[in-house]
Design a protein around this nucleic acid. Structure first.
Length: 474
DNA sequence: GGACGGTGAAACTTCAGGTTGCCTC
DNA sequence: GAAGTTTCACCGTCC
């Protein structure tokens, strides 16, 4: 196979060759930064142009981030990057753009390796190594198969090409042996992780599938985990420890049979780690600051992986921790939890995505992901507070949850109840003197029209029970 | 003579992702 | 460990 050498980099040559063949390709790399760089480098060499889609990509947020601008420039030239940091609307735009052929090349992290059916003729796998806690290492063969499997989907092509790029002769040999001709690794049970095990032990008791420790043992002995683990005495000990723990944190009662408490039943329904529930129950108080409250949510396993701290912001994050009196020496993750909390508080204080990317180095996609998890956990915290008879606390957490969801300060909570009114419009109303739902109701249509535009103003009036007739709109 | 711009080497920094769950005061 | 980014010294050019 002859590939024209139009650039120094193999990936660029392969990408350009794919475009010349009137085909499409995915380029897999190992970091978000590389995905952006790769898409950008390729975009500089194509002679494609698609302004319409590029504009759509840029307009996803009211204030475009640097990431939005970069993606915009790529899409203009028929390429794109795709990773978990993208806003979900941009992900969809990129995927759809690739499906309809507007975008020819996507440089991506493993986000696109599974689940999506895209018309890629080639999967160009630039990186088979990735950084982990042990350093730079080869990724599992299974992951290589996921990526290679993106090429030549039956709906679009009769065959496809997966191309690995090696950085040395040694690597080339290794890739040939382990990946191309090698076998994938064995599947391992994920049940052995303690938070998962705790959750399942509790739910088996709640659903009365297991009413005694013997029945629990019997159940787990038939799982894939036990099959792999083999040491049944050890498993018995682990299960027994879990049961004792659940009793200690008042989620079950041990008698003749194992019975879930009301708290335990709710925890199982909420599908959170029993220890998370316990931590929230013991540590949340009504008189906490936003950051303090968010820190406790971020200190739960469900929030992991937490945002990492860049060298330059270390002092800043430590200062926040000191100010809030957070000093958890036993928890190696406490500073990342503080940072994650700080980012969420920024959002609740109406900082926009561009600001958060600039100052915290957190992209819109990563932000959204954490907001969703924090919402879920705050809902769980509300429910736990209610069951524990702490109604005031439940109300307090509810406010936090609403603010997280909408990204607003407390003063806007009354306004964001309206359909079609989010953080931006609510702020506009508030800053123009319309601070409550009642004031909106009393406001003249012309004022709303000026602030929000005709369609939104009309809809808003309708929501407060006033139909604005067409003649007034003329 | 000084401002400016381009270049390349060295120093420095950072590192993938996605599933669940609930619908509220 | 390696890619990507930033910093900085160095050089040439222009006014």
């Amino acid at each position: 196979m002859e590939i024209k050498q139009l650039a120094k980099e193999h990936t660029i040559n392969l990408a350009l060759d794919t475009i010349a063949k009137d085909k499409q390709a995915l380029v897999f790399v190992n970091t978000k930064r590389s995905a952006e760089k790769e898409a950008e480098s390729i975009s500089k060499k194509t002679n494609l142009s698609c302004e319409a889609l590029a504009e759509k990509v840029r307009k996803v947020l009211p204030t475009p981030t640097k990431q939005c601008e970069r993606l915009f420039r790529c899409v203009q030239k028929g390429t794109a990057f795709h990773h978990a940091g993208l806003h979900s609307k941009q992900k969809t735009l990129v995927e759809d753009g690739f499906r309809d052929g507007t975008i020819k090349i996507i440089a991506c992290t493993p986000t696109l390796a599974a689940g999506l059916d895209l018309p890629a003729f080639r999967a160009i796998i630039r990186d088979l190594k990735r950084f982990d806690s042990f350093g730079m290492n080869f990724i599992p063969v299974l992951e290589y198969h996921q990526m290679a499997g993106r090429a030549g989907r039956p709906k679009y092509d009769t065959f496809g090409e997966a191309i690995c790029i090696a950085n040395s002769e040694d690597d080339a040999e290794h890739i040939m042996e382990e990946y191309i001709n090698g076998d994938p690794e064995n599947i391992l049970s994920k049940l052995a992780v303690e938070p998962v095990l705790r959750t399942y032990v509790l739910s088996l008791i709640v659903t009365r599938i297991a009413r005694t420790e013997e029945q629990l043992m019997d159940f787990f002995s038939k799982t894939f985990w036990a099959h792999q683990y083999e040491d049944h005495d050890e498993i018995e000990e682990i299960i027994s420890r879990m049961v004792n723990l659940l009793e200690e944190i008042e989620q079950i009662k041990k008698g003749k049979t194992l019975e879930a408490t009301r708290l335990g039943r709710r925890v199982a329904e909420l599908y959170i780690d029993p220890l998370t529930a316990h931590s929230l129950r013991k540590r949340l108080h009504t008189d906490m600051s936003d950051t303090g409250m968010l820190y406790l949510l971020c200190d739960c396993v469900e929030m992991k992986p937490l945002f990492s701290i860049r060298q330059a912001e270390y002092d800043d994050i430590e200062a926040v921790a000191t100010k809030e009196g957070i000093d958890d020496m036993f928890n190696e993750d406490y500073l990342p939890a503080v940072k994650t909390a700080a980012v969420l508080v920024d959002w609740m204080d109406e900082k926009n995505e561009a600001f958060i990317l600039e100052h915290r180095n957190i992209t819109p996609g990563e932000l959204r992901n954490k907001i969703e998890k924090a919402k879920w956990l705050s809902y769980a915290a509300m429910e736990i507070a209610k069951i524990s008879g702490q109604r005031e606390l439940s109300k307090r957490v509810y406010k936090t949850k609403l603010r997280l969801e909408k990204g607003v300060k407390e003063e806007l909570l009354d306004l964001i109840r309206f359909k079609g009114i989010g953080r931006v419009r609510a702020r506009t109303l508030f800053n123009n003197g319309l601070k409550t739902a009642t004031e909106v109701k009393r406001a003249k249509f012309d004022i709303l029209n000026r602030l929000l535009g005709q369609a939104v103003a009309r809809d808003l009036k309708k929501q407060v029970g006033e139909n604005v007739v067409q003649s007034r709109l003329a």
